[in-house]
Nucleic acid binder design. Structure first.
Lengths: 190, 190
DNA sequence: AACAAATATTGACATTGTCAACATATTTTT
DNA sequence: AAAAATATGTTGACAATGTCAATATTTGTT
């Protein structure tokens, strides 16, 4: 993070990474614009050019983690050969990802501005990529397992809620019980 | 909140209430010891006699909400006549409670220091009262519905995770979809 | 080359958490 | 009841932080 020139070159992204580091090492309450700036070797007011205020900065960090999460899920989907196991693998991926970013868990899963809902037996389009991916992948699997069309949306939401709930419990336990829990996730899903 | 004498009389509790008000009206990030003190009509350093630091203060607010939540669940249990409907009613209570304290939701449900786990087909004793109550109530109901003993713990955890997950989605949606969701909760549980 | 835009710095200020020293009220001890 | 100890509240100070205005430097455009 050496300072070679007046202009940093990639400050915005490095501030986000610094912010994520602060959150994961010390908790969301200790996120600080000035410290993130210091970590990037720039002055305390430099972030102002990239983020209007601390709230927008925190939002940017959150969005970055969400994008990482989305990429991670996409990898799991791409690597998966056996569609029958996909839902289980996505559930596992959910937990595994937040093993690396435990502090970000509630940040990501409790965003007030994301939209997850259903009406008339149809899941409405969401602005939350991980959920969209889950819906897209889980739908065909459930259909092939005989779930009726008018119960499909509900079943998908059940699974999503359960995965979120289980992942939350995992995070709370510091991921100590992965073995047993994974067995449970499998039984729930199939 | 008038200041009648040098000593406030009930400062600790009123600080907690002020803190909760700040959290619910402006979000956890805007919790402030000094503002809570001002709301109680005392000087900025008065809270120091009741809370070591801001973290302990936030913890106290969180514990207060948890106790309110526990009392609310207990009321539901006490008022319930039909045991068959108890699990559904507790799920509903879960959501209803956080309708009043939406900002506190992730605070309460994502505490790192609470213990929820199982081993050898038994749920381990938890330090988290709401979960303990759920286990205690749900167990007999599931048994009476034919759930086998070696699947009981797992089924209880499934239900708990699902309720937490659904409640989280509710909170995100601003509780707009309660009708449909409640129908879903019922179908999941029975 | 000249100008405009983007990006970084410096200095200032208000807010906040925290601490130490002190003040006042309450409780306990004698 | 007086004195001492304890609990509770105040004031003033300081460092860390978010934010802003003014300024400086670099980069891109014309």
């Amino acid at each position: 993070m050496e300072k070679l020139s007046y202009h940093h070159g990639n400050l915005k992204q490095e501030l986000i990474l610094a912010g994520l580091k602060l959150i994961e090492e010390e908790g969301i309450s200790r996120l600080s614009l000035r410290r993130a700036a210091a970590m990037c070797g720039v002055s305390h007011a430099a972030p102002k050019n990239h983020f209007r205020d601390k709230e927008e900065f925190a939002e940017a960090v959150k969005n970055y983690v969400t994008e990482e999460f989305t990429r991670y899920l996409q990898e799991v989907i791409d690597q998966n050969r056996n569609k029958e196991e996909l839902i289980r693998d996505m559930g596992r991926a959910f937990v595994r990802f937040f093993k690396d970013y435990p502090q970000s868990f509630s940040l990501i899963t409790n965003q007030k501005n994301i939209c997850i809902s259903m009406s008339e037996h149809k899941i409405e389009k969401s602005n939350y990529a991980p959920f969209e991916m889950f819906v897209e992948q889980a739908g065909p699997v459930l259909r092939s397992r005989g779930v009726k069309e008018n119960e499909l949306a509900q079943k998908i939401l059940e699974l999503w809620a359960m995965v979120c709930g289980l992942a939350g419990i995992y995070v709370m336990q510091g991921f100590h019980y992965e073995g047993d829990w994974m067995e449970m996730v499998n039984k729930i899903i199939y």
